[in-house]
Design a protein around this nucleic acid. Structure first.
Lengths: 142, 142
DNA sequence: GTTCCTGCAAAAGCTTTGCAGAAGA
DNA sequence: TCTTCTGCAAAGCTTTTGCAGGAAC
């Protein structure tokens, strides 16, 4: 799936438009998500930013992510395991988790064409499609 | 969604066919899942069986569920929150979680008709569709 | 100057593990 | 009899909370 990295100014604008107070930590977390489209865990974000910001705490990462989720800038992915993952790509798309390498891949799927039965009168806010199996890379490595 | 309750003998057979050693606790957990199609949490199973089996421990419930999952008799649902839910209905169907009451509803969806792009060469083992929003009951209560 | 954020420590909640006694086959 | 299960206590993880100092506006 294609995506464009956003410039630092645009990330700043994104936060400002959402009425989120700017801070060094928040910008860095957002920048990390933008530069590392791997649906990272909190741990991965923490380790990825630790060298640059040694004082950064996981609490702040959690706080920041929750703020970004509330603002709609980030989506949380709860696909297996009891460990949340975070996605800056808020377009509707599916997620595939490889049982071998643990990586999560995006894929295209047209959720608007779904024919469903049994949700008459229900208000749907979010839709998620999660697949799991073995990714093409790990299939080859067999 | 319709379903048929299974008789106690059939539950016994189910376990035997999967080469799972019979025990009072395992039968009761399986029976609870069969009689309570609410995609219960471990806590709900524990509370539901506590009166009948006061000595039952959560460890045993976890052990039993993991055994049943391995045998393919039960499916785990990880839809939001850090709390697993368990489903004895292993047919392919979607899950809707109500943000208001917390209940999880089944709905029909034909996953075989999905048109997806980006998973060439991937081996898909599981497919899950998770919706969330407000269920019809909670919409009315507004 | 006021409001809100950061980060430490502690707590909370779900799940797994180690192990001795008990139950299933 | 031999294997496997149960259930207690403890530990392991992820995530949240309380709060004092600090940064943003």
């Amino acid at each position: 799936m294609n995506y464009m990295r956003t410039s630092m100014e645009n990330l700043t604008t994104k936060l400002k438009n959402s009425n989120i107070r700017l801070s060094h930590q928040r910008l860095k977390v957002l920048e990390y998500l933008d530069n590392n489209r791997i649906h990272p865990t909190v741990d991965q974000i923490y380790n990825g930013l630790h060298d640059e910001i040694p004082t950064l705490s996981k609490t702040t990462i959690y706080n920041t992510l929750n703020t970004l989720i509330e603002a709609g800038l980030v989506k949380i992915i709860t696909i297996e395991d009891n460990e949340a993952r975070y996605d800056i790509n808020t377009d509707l798309h599916g997620h595939f988790k490889c049982k071998a390498c643990g990586n999560i891949y995006d894929f295209e799927i047209d959720m608007d064409s779904f024919k469903i039965k049994g949700l008459d009168g229900f208000k749907v806010f979010t839709r998620d499609v999660y697949y799991s199996g073995i990714c093409s890379k790990c299939v080859e490595d067999d």
